[in-house]
């Protein structure tokens, strides 16, 4: 374009895409470490496998698309997707699930839609949904149990590694995710009875609470660095609470509000998934509505659905609605009496 002459502004800020990605990765580390501390080496091993396969998959599709490989890889977005997948997938799941998920995220969800910034869906969540519906068995039974609950030590690094690489299966104790577990149990037991079961003696949600707090810490870091805005996360919490508060009044049949907030992927989803800029809404109001929708859907799918956690499906459903939300949530521009909303220009506009 001939228009691309040198013109104002002549100075640029020091921000770069890769810096943003790297900070998000850094912000996810406390959560990853907390997961590894309570649930064993599986998460770290998974993350490494996911990152490597995501980077390789991106390199391959870039070559196929005849795009610069190294320059694109440098933006670290593939690494980020790998890390997000690593902390989402079950720690005892076999290696090929990681590879399939990462490859699908990179090739189908990201690059078939045009690459970085063009994807309609959140790559990590779409890939999670893919492996969850494709391999229901390993995806629901490969969750690890903290030592304080099972009474058995977590597998050593080499045991975990050979299990995940399918060299030698480790015969450890796995259980459903805390959310899933509580959901099934509360149908038969009262809340008091449930608190007496071995899984809950160590506390209502031992381990997972700290994991959520660690993700919260990372999220606050991102807010502080102004890499994300508060609208999405607050929207998600609001949406979730709007349903969870009234419905959890009966403690003997519903999950407590605190479990909704801190026993699943809620905090992770709020700060690391809902805030994914490419697949979320654009304006601040839009981001809030996007998060709110994710919150509502998450509650519904968790409570009345069959899946262990609902963030992924809720996010995917809201991803589809994001362009629509955008059209109705344009901010009011300076000097305009009201925001331009919808798909048509208002009559009186010039």
């Amino acid at each position: 374009m001939s228009l691309m002459q040198r013109s104002s502004p002549h100075v640029m800020g020091r921000n770069t895409t890769s810096r943003i990605m790297l900070w998000v990765i850094v912000a996810a580390l406390p959560g990853l470490l907390a997961l590894s501390y309570f649930y064993g080496w599986g998460y770290l091993i998974n993350t490494v496998i996911c990152v490597v396969s995501a980077v390789l998959a991106e390199a391959a599709i870039l070559m196929l698309r005849k795009r610069p490989v190294l320059k694109t890889l440098k933006d670290a977005s593939a690494v980020l997707t790998g890390v997000l997948l690593g902390v989402t997938l079950p720690p005892f799941a076999p290696w090929w699930i990681m590879v399939i998920a990462s490859g699908f995220a990179m090739v189908f969800v990201k690059h078939l839609y045009g690459g970085l910034g063009q994807n309609l869906f959140n790559p990590a969540m779409a890939a999670f949904a893919l492996v969850l519906i494709s391999f229901p068995l390993p995806m629901t039974t490969s969750w690890s149990t903290p030592e304080a609950i099972s009474g058995e030590p977590l597998p050593s690094f080499s045991q975990q590694l050979s299990h995940n690489l399918e060299w030698q299966a480790y015969d450890g104790i796995t259980m459903a995710t805390p959310l899933d577990h509580y959901k099934t149990k509360i149908k038969r037991l009262t809340a008091d009875e449930l608190a007496q079961t071995p899984e809950y003696v160590a506390g209502p949600f031992y381990g997972i609470l700290w994991v959520n707090l660690a993700f919260l810490l990372g999220g606050l870091l991102l807010l502080f660095l102004k890499i994300i805005s508060w609208h999405g996360p607050v929207g998600l919490f609001t949406g979730l609470l709007v349903l969870a508060l009234p419905f959890s009044a009966d403690a003997d049949s519903a999950m407590p509000v605190l479990m909704h907030l801190f026993a699943g992927a809620t905090v992770f989803g709020a700060f690391f998934i809902v805030t994914d800029p490419a697949s979320s809404a654009t304006s601040n109001r839009g981001k809030f509505i996007f998060g709110f929708g994710v919150g509502i859907l998450t509650y519904c799918i968790r409570t009345w659905g069959n899946f262990p956690d609902a963030i992924a499906f809720a996010v995917l459903l809201m991803n589809i609605s994001a362009p629509f939300i955008d059209h109705y949530t344009r901010p009011r521009t300076y000097g305009k009496p009201k925001p331009v909303s919808g798909y048509k220009l208002p009559e009186e506009s010039p």
């Binding site: 895409t17 690459g115 970085l116 910034g117 805005s229 654009t282 981001k287 901010p331 000097g335």
Partner: peptide, 19 residues
């Protein structure tokens, strides 16, 4: 330029409240 990642920083910086 790298591809737009829709990070929304521009929106937070716009003094005219545009997107």
């Amino acid at each position: 330029p790298d591809p737009c990642i829709r990070c929304g920083l521009c929106e937070q910086a716009c003094p005219a409240n545009l997107l």
